[in-house]
Design a protein around this nucleic acid. Sequence first.
DNA 1: ACATCGATCTACT
DNA 2: GTAGATCGATGTA
Length: 191
Amino acid sequence: MRKLGREFYLLDTVEVAQRLLGKILVHCTDQGVVSGRIVETEAYLRDDPACHASRGMTRRNKAMFGDPGHAYVYTTHGNRCCLNVVTQPQGIPEAVLIRALIPLEGIEIMQVNRGRSCLEDLCSGPAKLTQALGITLDLNEEDLLGDRLFVVDDGTQVETIVSKPRIGIRVATDKLWRFYPAELTRWVSKR
DNA sequence: ACATCGATCTACT
DNA sequence: GTAGATCGATGTA
């Protein structure tokens, strides 16, 4: 069990997205530790029209321009929010969206947070997992090498990585930058 | 100051 | 498969 270091987030952003599969996202909350295994990610690159930062820095996306290994949390459609990990050195706005987890620790907390009991419906979507883990805007720009929110490697390897177009975007649909392990499709947001 | 639109989710048909 | 919720961020003036 090893927390990912800063150097991990300096790798090529597509490689970070692929290598995050199988790692464990951990949030230490007041109610207890909540964690899940990452099984779906999407890469967003600086010159990519689908990337929030492709048209310059705004108040919302400024975390993407910051140091690697920090969180970029944004809100969309009212109440919902999504979690990214920032990659690349300061000034280069790239990030990986975490889209799905397999629940591990704190499952009862997740069930309360989500108002759902079915395990497959707790974290199978970017806004579902933030609700389940209790991740909100106050974790925007949080250092992922700190003690509240981080990613650990327990040595688990995924077998075959599937590459697909990203979900919910209307541009750059030719880029196959959505990734999930072929053997774990029951836990992802869509097939 | 105002209009538009989401890197979504749920419920319903 | 499709519609409605929901509100802050963003762009335009």
